[in-house]
Each structure stands twice: as C-alpha cells, then as structure tokens.
Simulated assay, not measured.
Amino acid sequence: MPSALIVDDEADARSVLKKILELFCPQVTDIDEAANGRDALRLASGTAYDLAFIDIKLKNENGIDLAKGISNYCNNIVFVTAFDEYAVRAFQTEAIHFLLKPVDPELLQQAVARGLAGNYRLNLLKDRLFLRTKERINVLKYEEIQYIVGDGNYATFHTTNGGSLMVSRNLAYYEKLIDSPVFARSHQSYLIHLQFISEIMVANHLVIMDDGTKIPISRRLRDPFVKAFMQLK
C-alpha cells in the first residue's frame, strides 16, 4: 500500500498534515513522521516510501539539502512551507510539488496523485528557468533565451522578444543549471542558444545571432563551441 514520510520539526504541523492525508488521501495508508534530518534519513533508508513531505525550513537544517539525501530512497519529494520565498529554490529541484501552509487539501490530492501515478518526477525547471528579481519571479523558457551575458556576480538574459533581464547570479551558475546541448559557451562572458545563431565567423572569432548581434568567440573555447554547434545542426 502507498506510504509517506512527513518531515517537520513542529509536532503540530506533522499532526495536521497527517490528518489531512488521512481524510483526503485515504489511499496513503502508511504514514511515518520525522522531526529532523537524521531520523528522516534513517526512516527513508529502511523504507521505500512512495512520497516524502519535507518542510523546507527545519530547525538548524535546510530541507532542500535534506531532500537531496532522501531522494536516494524516495522518488517523489513534496516540499511544504509557510514561506513562499522558498518557491524559487524548490522549483530548482526535482520535487513533484510545492505546498504552502496551511495546506490546501485539493493541492495535496494533486501532489499525491502525481506521485502515485508512477515513477514520475516533475522537474519544474525542465526547459525553463525561474529568475527572481526584487519585484517578481520571471519564468523564461529555454526557447525564449537567445544568449546570456555574465558580468561578475550578475547575468543578463537577452530574449527573443528583444528584452533583457538581469539577475544576481553569475554565468557559471546558469550554465550548470541549464545543462542543455542547445546552449554553449563562446566566451567566458557569453552563453549562447545555438539555435539562434545565423553565422559563425571562425577566422574573425565572432558569432552572428539571428537579430544581428555580434558575440565574441575566445580562442580557448572556439573549437568546442564550433563542435557543439555542428553537432546540433
């Protein structure tokens, strides 16, 4: 029968979530609780849980880091928190759902149904990025990004609609996060979506984008960049 692990450092919070599960998700018949990461990992390593509900902000612990360990034993991670500012970090994991306290029973049912539908992981970051500025959370699909320019601890995204968006993360962070063959570095300061390239002027060490933008190619990255472009085409 389907089983679940609830990880929260507050006993009342664990009790409430367990009660909601029992009332609205009766298919989940075996529910265990853990108040800290140590107990959670001990339980998870000994039981093949179908679902793990993890509070992001645990006492003296980071729930997202804990989830990485628990994911070795449970494919379906659901983050639960009272703080919506953690949404971006949660989206950048392989969690199947993100729930805000107080938990909405209908959203809980969706999370459970998603997890029990099979070995299904919803990577909310797949083919898109969630970029946070002071004012909002911006969602950019990979297909909307022409190139990214790095400048120290900042990165500026240039999009297909001619717009741009600066965020306070360095280019290396996004290169690792995207990890897609359609993107390649031409230069230490440029990560390019290869499908928006119009021409590569190898001798001149330049990339010409579809909109006419000229981007430099460094000597060190020229050969792997051209190879990545040719393999994509």
Results as ranks from 00 to 15, higher is better:
residue 38 R to Q: 14
residue 165 L to C: 11
residue 167 V to A: 09
residue 197 I to M: 07
residue 102 P to F: 09
residue 146 Q to D: 00
residue 54 I to S: 04
residue 163 G to D: 04
residue 35 A to Y: 06
residue 205 H to G: 04
residue 113 A to T: 05
residue 75 N to S: 09
residue 175 E to N: 13
residue 233 K to T: 03
residue 1 M to T: 02
residue 151 D to L: 15
residue 136 R to H: 05
residue 155 A to W: 03
residue 25 C to F: 06
residue 83 F to D: 01
residue 223 D to C: 12
residue 183 F to E: 01
residue 1 M to W: 05
residue 137 I to C: 13
residue 217 I to P: 01
residue 178 I to R: 14
residue 41 L to A: 08
residue 56 I to C: 12
residue 99 L to C: 06
residue 47 T to Q: 14
residue 25 C to M: 04
residue 28 V to F: 02
residue 156 T to N: 02
residue 50 D to V: 07
residue 23 L to V: 11
residue 33 E to D: 14
residue 106 E to P: 01
residue 168 S to C: 10
residue 95 A to E: 07
residue 159 T to G: 06
residue 60 N to C: 14
residue 165 L to F: 11
residue 119 N to G: 12
residue 24 F to H: 10
residue 55 D to W: 11
residue 203 A to D: 03
residue 222 R to W: 03
residue 76 N to E: 03
residue 95 A to N: 02
residue 205 H to N: 12
residue 38 R to D: 00
residue 16 V to S: 10
residue 55 D to Y: 07
residue 142 Y to G: 13
residue 146 Q to E: 00
residue 21 L to W: 02
residue 210 D to K: 15
residue 151 D to F: 13
residue 80 V to L: 11
residue 179 D to K: 15
residue 204 N to V: 01
residue 53 F to A: 11
residue 137 I to Q: 05
residue 202 V to P: 02
residue 159 T to R: 13
residue 34 A to S: 15
residue 113 A to V: 02
residue 50 D to L: 13
residue 146 Q to T: 14
residue 90 A to S: 10
residue 64 I to H: 05
residue 56 I to H: 00
residue 79 F to Y: 09
residue 114 R to N: 11
residue 20 I to Q: 14
residue 86 Y to P: 11
residue 68 K to I: 10
residue 219 R to S: 12
residue 64 I to L: 12
residue 16 V to R: 15
residue 5 L to M: 13
residue 106 E to F: 10
residue 60 N to Q: 12
residue 231 Q to A: 14
residue 68 K to N: 07
residue 102 P to R: 13
residue 95 A to S: 09
residue 195 Q to N: 09
residue 30 D to T: 13
residue 150 G to E: 04
residue 123 N to Q: 15
residue 218 S to V: 01
residue 7 V to S: 14
residue 99 L to G: 00
residue 70 I to Q: 05
residue 169 R to N: 11
